[in-house]
Write a protein that binds this DNA or RNA. Structure first.
Lengths: 118, 118
DNA sequence: TCTACATATTCAAAGAAGCGTATATGTGAA
DNA sequence: TTCACATATACGCTTCTTTGAATATGTAGA
């Protein structure tokens, strides 16, 4: 039903692909699934959404998410280790901001698909 | 850095939002994260990619993924329960196809971001 | 220096996810 | 009906993820 004819730009995967091409594809799938795992967590998703409107301190995020300090900090650590966010220290507080355009692009689509529907 | 000024259509989340709006947003985030969890698995991601080129039988998918029957079947069950794929029986074999345009759209972006880069 | 505050890290416990083996279901053909 | 094939499900096991509690680090100010 929703296949390539319908405006998708997805690759055609066929049996003529070389082993090298298959391997590259598997690697990409692995990379992509790690990325998706990083953002497929309600709290982390909300953090990314909030950061999309500009940098926020950890305390601000705690309040916005009604979550505990340790939890938010851990979620930020995960996002940091995936290279999706970046800390900036100003005195005692640390501000986080998005660093990865991929996060923004996916977020855009996700928002479009899950938040704008009736 | 990557905030709304940069072409993103993400919502501005501010303190003037009503509680109802916040709740709706939390619900959407939950729904979205379930969806993302469903596709953030290397095997399921590959299944979706393969189905993007047209329907495939379970046996075909087993071969394409070099995975065992039970594993593929379980992954399909998960995708089915999320409403992302749909089975069609023809005799003894069952063909799966994509049913959710959201999967295709996300896949498109993911492919763009993870497979087309240098 | 000591204290308070903001954030990070560690670690154990709880929970969820994925996998393999075995078994069940459904279908067509003999 | 019986058999073989395609697929699905159940169950136990292992591994990954998330969380809370406690503790550590880093910074500013007294």
């Amino acid at each position: 039903m929703f296949d390539n004819q319908k405006g998708s730009n997805l690759p055609v995967i066929n049996s003529e692909m070389s082993e090298a091409e298959i391997n590259r594809m598997m690697e990409s799938a692995c990379e992509a699934s790690n990325f998706l795992k990083a953002i497929s967590h309600e709290g982390r998703l909300m953090i990314l959404c909030h950061l999309a409107t500009g940098e926020k301190s950890v305390t601000e995020l705690e309040q916005l998410l009604s979550a505990r300090q340790a939890a938010v900090s851990q979620q930020l650590a995960r996002l940091r280790s995936e290279g999706l966010v970046e800390p900036r220290r100003d005195g005692k507080t640390i501000y986080y901001s998005l660093t990865d355009r991929r996060a923004v692009q996916i977020l855009d689509v996700v928002y479009e698909l899950f938040c704008k529907k009736g």
